[in-house]
Write a protein that binds this DNA or RNA. Structure first.
Lengths: 216, 216
DNA sequence: ACCTGAACACCGTTCAAGT
DNA sequence: ACCTGAACACCGTTCAAGT
């Protein structure tokens, strides 16, 4: 019932919404959300500085859309890594941790946008909330599988998941924020920090029983 | 050798720098740094909108000063709690975790300012970097004491500290950012989440040996 | 339906000038 | 030394108007 001709493009631009999103994504990747204006994005997209208001209520809505895409991408990466990981839930959790941290290092400004408080009224964007929750559920799935297979301890799934999430989340933010004194952040450090942290979380900080002391 | 009279106050205001800082602190606590302008701070402090430039190079410098105070305060809280805690390093780590999370919940906007990326050129503020590092050292001290007393496992101090720091940091940010789906954030939740997370970190996520199964 | 351009009420920052 | 006021180059957002 739609008119056959007249492809999606119309008056001036065609697919302005996606063009805006891609432009914004690139500018933010370069300089961070704090340093990017809506007028600038519009100009880079080749439209007047008010055109975006046809597609977004305001600047926050653009940020929310970008953050949502970030959450979906990060969750997808996690799922892929989990699926690819040989070994049990312990190894899978390690893979998630690495993926989370590597994502942050690869796209620091996007991670800041997702978690840094640039988006004030989170509740106004239900699909953003949902995408963020989906990320947590990826981790929850791994923990749950580990409990069912008996490799991870019993207890409230939410508690264990929150703990694992907090660890990888905090690690990624500390690294991306360059808040760790005295270290150079390169691929080697990221891999080591992620693996060691997840290992310590899984095995515990407490001194292991001596009967089976592993060399460290 | 200083002139005895003429108390610090002079021309118009006296102690404008501290007045600005206190005003900014309050406005940020109410609405978050993103929503506060320098002109507004100046007006609330009762001076013209350019007076701040006599004391700060720019807006970022004001933010940096506030964040630095936040780091010093949080580190101080941690030290106090550690000193007050009866029991070993395990209990002390738990106290640090709670303190960190409670600080974030009490001053969410300040935590966002300290860690949320509002301050772009971190390196320009060496005393801020130092204050942030001092916070990490508080945690390192606890971990080190635990290793020396034999209660915590051996291994690189930096690794164990980073892991513990990441956990409490991530937990605080997830809670403050209200990123945890399906929970109400009240004092009970905060206490439970902090204690349970630190406990899991210390004991590990792996299924405990059955010979001495603790009731959970 | 989609976009433009003028307009409004703001910003951060600079600078000559006042006391 | 410390502060003011005008000025500059920006913002985000609204709205009447164009096609």
């Amino acid at each position: 019932m739609k008119p056959p001709a007249a492809p999606t493009r119309n008056y001036h631009h065609g697919d302005l919404k996606n063009t805006l999103l891609a432009t914004a994504s690139q500018l933010i990747a370069e300089r961070g959300a704090e340093a990017v204006s809506l007028r600038e994005i519009s100009q880079a997209a080749g439209v007047s500085h008010t055109a975006a208001y046809r597609h977004y209520a305001d600047k926050q809505a653009v940020w929310a859309d970008l953050a949502e895409a970030g959450f979906r991408e990060l969750a997808e990466i996690n799922r892929t890594r989990v699926a690819k990981t040989k070994g049990g839930p312990v190894e899978q959790l390690g893979a998630c941790g690495r993926a989370y941290v590597e994502f942050g290092v690869r796209r620091p400004h996007l991670l800041q946008l997702m978690f840094g408080g640039s988006i004030v009224d989170w509740q106004s964007y239900p699909s953003l909330v949902q995408a963020s929750a989906a990320l947590a559920e990826t981790l929850a799935g791994v923990v749950k599988a580990g409990q069912e297979s008996g490799e991870l301890r019993a207890g409230e799934l939410g508690d264990l998941t929150l703990t694992a999430w907090s660890l990888v989340h905090g690690l990624a933010l500390l690294i991306v924020g360059r808040r760790i004194p005295g270290v150079t952040i390169d691929e080697g450090f990221v891999r080591h920090a992620a693996e060691r942290s997840v290992q310590l979380l899984i095995e515990g900080l407490r001194r292991p029983p001596t009967r089976r002391a592993k060399r460290n």
